[in-house]
Computed example of a mutant assay.
Amino acid sequence: MGHMDISPTTPSLWIKIILGAVLVTFTCFYAWEFWSQKAPSIPHPHYLVFSGSDEPITPLPLAPPDLDQRKVVLGRKLFNELKLSHDNTIACASCHQLNRGGVDSRKYSLGIYGQLGSINAPTVYNSGYNFRQFWNGRAATLEQQIDGPVNNPVEMGSSWSEVISKLQKDPSYSIKFSSIYSDGITAENIENAIATFERSLITPNSRFDKFLRGDSKAITSKEFFGYQLFKSYGCISCHQGINIGGNLYEKLGIMLPYFKENGHLVVADMGRYVITKNIEDMHVFKVPGLRNIALTGPYLHDGSAPTLEDVVKIMGKYQLGLDLTNEDISEIVAFLRTLTGEYDGKPL
């Protein structure tokens, strides 16, 4: 009484249990050591096998386009020329400020006599890579785009006859035009010079471009994960290629009715419908390129999204049908901030 009956087999059973526990411990330890080296829980991109050539985004060329530099110089002068407006107060550079990402950072731009426009001014940087110009795509070329603001009564409020008359009174313009164009100062030549300058406004060598070219340390882990989310959630379906957009049309409000939930409908909200009168084009816009996006707020055609966080959340909801978490938004925004490039060899 008071003694436990221990069978002869009990010690061997305990030995097996102990040996098994030791084996499991060592197995887990070495497995953890192996995988922690092969795949860190928060890997820097340089741990990863990555081929930029297989990616849906293409880096901008490091060398500027082969352009007639005489036209570039003349176009730059005209881009900043107030005489293009009726009251000599507005130039192309008024709404497309090169020191502010190619925009004016306003919801709507101001035209002559302080008139307020009805749509957010897109960036002029890398605009030569867009397949169409304007939010509704009504201009096929940069030359055609220039015709719009000059003749718009709310923007420059002028006419080509008035602009040409002003420029002809300036001897320096007469000399410059005649040295480049056989027919001197014409509307077509003014458009051509400005458009040539605008085609020179490329911004290569962003940190993400460097990453695509093989510099795995150009971006951080968070930025890399943001890019993976950008792809896996479907943002990449509209924002890809050399300009990370600017090469197709898309409806704003694919998954949910953006305009039904966001106030009174105005003409600018109609998108391509204004041009085509096809009901299927209602609320369809040219997808904007995302290069230098961190500098070009406020966002969307209506300038309703003040920050990158705001516009990513809106896109997730209305375009993808996703309720993105704050962490997702933070990582995607971190990626978007890697898209800021350089102009004339200097960071924007």
Rank of each mutant, 00 (worst) to 15 (best):
K169Q: 06
K260Q: 13
S206C: 00
F335S: 05
L290K: 09
I175P: 07
I57K: 13
D310V: 07
A21Y: 15
G345P: 08
K222G: 07
G234V: 06
Q145E: 10
P8V: 02
L167P: 01
A218V: 02
F134A: 10
T89E: 08
T10G: 02
S182P: 05
F259Y: 13
L300D: 10
S232N: 12
M1T: 01
F131N: 04
P306Q: 03
E327F: 15
T58W: 04
L167A: 11
F34A: 11
I219F: 01
N247F: 15
D215Q: 10
E223F: 05
L300T: 12
D302V: 05
D328R: 12
A305L: 06
A305E: 15
P122T: 05
L290T: 04
P122I: 05
T203M: 01
Y343F: 09
R213A: 14
G128Y: 02
L13N: 02
S200L: 01
S94C: 13
V267A: 00
V163E: 11
L295D: 02
S206M: 00
E55P: 13
V274R: 04
E55L: 03
R138V: 05
Y343A: 05
S165K: 15
G341T: 02
V150S: 10
N152R: 07
S165E: 11
L201P: 03
Y318K: 06
S165N: 15
H3S: 06
V287Q: 04
G111Y: 10
G341N: 02
W14Y: 15
G316R: 11
K166G: 03
T203Q: 10
S179W: 11
V103M: 02
V266Y: 00
S174K: 12
G128C: 01
T10I: 02
E162Y: 15
G345M: 03
R213C: 03
I275V: 06
T276K: 06
Y318A: 00
L82N: 03
L295N: 00
S206T: 09
F208N: 00
S36W: 05
P204V: 05
G263Y: 09
N130I: 06
D281F: 07
E331Q: 15
F225A: 13
V267E: 11
Y299C: 04
V24S: 01
G20V: 03
L48M: 11
I314P: 09
L60C: 01
G102Q: 05
S105E: 14
I242Y: 05
G245L: 04
N126Y: 01
Y227L: 00
G245W: 06
D215F: 04
A21L: 14
K107P: 08
D209E: 08
G303C: 09
W32P: 12
W160H: 14
I17T: 10
D215I: 06
S161H: 14
S200M: 04
